[in-house]
């Protein structure tokens, strides 16, 4: 199975719109949304209700039994994450949003009052029907999003059978969830925009991808907002030897599609035409025949 990852570096450049359109163009039987902080792809892919949902356990969180706590404060003194503080009753309590589950407090507590306990850090969803779609929502303020991304991909791969192509919507940025998204994919298509921010973020993302040895290609969304910068992005790609797959014009239909809960692939408009061209060139890079 070829695994196509759609990434953006900077948020809001049209990554999810692109992923949704590609899923329609390819009639892809396998898709996933790895933006576990803010999963949006399901909003525009017209899925049947989720077939299965399950909790995701992240790192343990410490809990202090107030009945056993002596109030010595050794745990709070040692905690590197500022997660433990004194309560009004003179005992100590853990802020679960700051705790990383290292277990040092449990090691140090002379009364055995502190214990690491399992914590639900998110929820995975699997949709099946015509094809398979996986996504997840990270719980408020939880870390380990990279591991949840890995779980989403595993959920997809375990359930999608012999699909020829998987389309994966990545997460923004260059941190841990992005690296987890990139792991093992055939190609990462970066959707950027013609702005100084879009250019800088794309360059950081390309460097991150090359560290992870993932092949990348680039397209520019809303290219006509700044033709000069679009040109700069294209020439930077050619200097770097990166395939530049095309420009998508600014098109109000993109917003319309989102608000109507459907893919831009279903609306005949200039942006759709451009996206289709980029889709065809992406499939060529993957050696897949979709014309």
């Amino acid at each position: 199975m070829k695994k196509l990852l759609i990434l953006s570096g900077k948020g809001g450049t049209g990554k999810t719109t692109t992923a949704a359109a590609f899923i329609r163009f390819a009639n892809a039987r396998a898709a996933a949304d790895c933006d576990v902080d803010a999963p949006n792809l399901a909003l525009v892919t017209q899925l049947a209700p989720a077939a299965a949902e399950r909790d995701f356990h992240g790192s343990d969180k410490a809990r202090i039994d107030a009945g056993l706590c002596l109030g010595c404060g050794e745990c709070a003194r040692l905690c590197r994450f500022g997660a433990i503080s004194r309560t009004q009753e003179g005992k100590y309590a853990v802020d679960e949003l700051r705790c990383e589950g290292c277990g040092l407090c449990a090691e140090a507590c002379p009364a055995g009052a502190a214990r690491p306990e399992p914590d639900v850090a998110g929820r995975l969803r699997l949709f099946s029907g015509g094809g398979v779609f996986a996504d997840a929502q990270l719980r408020m303020g939880r870390g380990n999003s990279g591991k949840l991304v890995t779980e989403v991909k595993r959920e997809l791969y375990d359930n999608c059978g012999e699909a020829e192509l998987a389309v994966i919507d990545g997460s923004p940025g260059v941190g841990c969830p992005v690296m987890a998204s990139m792991n093992g994919v055939s190609l990462a298509l970066i959707v950027t925009e013609p702005s100084v921010s879009g250019l800088g973020d794309m360059q950081r993302l390309v460097r991150t991808a090359s560290m992870a040895r993932v092949r990348t290609a680039v397209c520019v969304n809303r290219a006509d907002v700044d033709m000069e910068l679009s040109g700069r992005i294209e020439s930077w790609c050619s200097e770097q030897g990166l395939p530049f797959l095309g420009r998508i014009p600014f098109d109000k239909n993109a917003q319309r599609a989102i608000n109507e809960g459907r893919s831009l692939a279903d609306i005949d408009c200039p942006a759709r035409t451009a996206l289709y061209g980029i889709f065809v060139r992406t499939m060529e890079l993957l050696n897949l025949n979709y014309t």
Partner: peptide
Amino acid sequence: TEPTAFGLHDLRLVAELMRV
């Protein structure tokens, strides 16, 4: 936020964070 379904979806999450 921005006036789209994506914007609203993600705004709900940040609003929850504000409550926390």
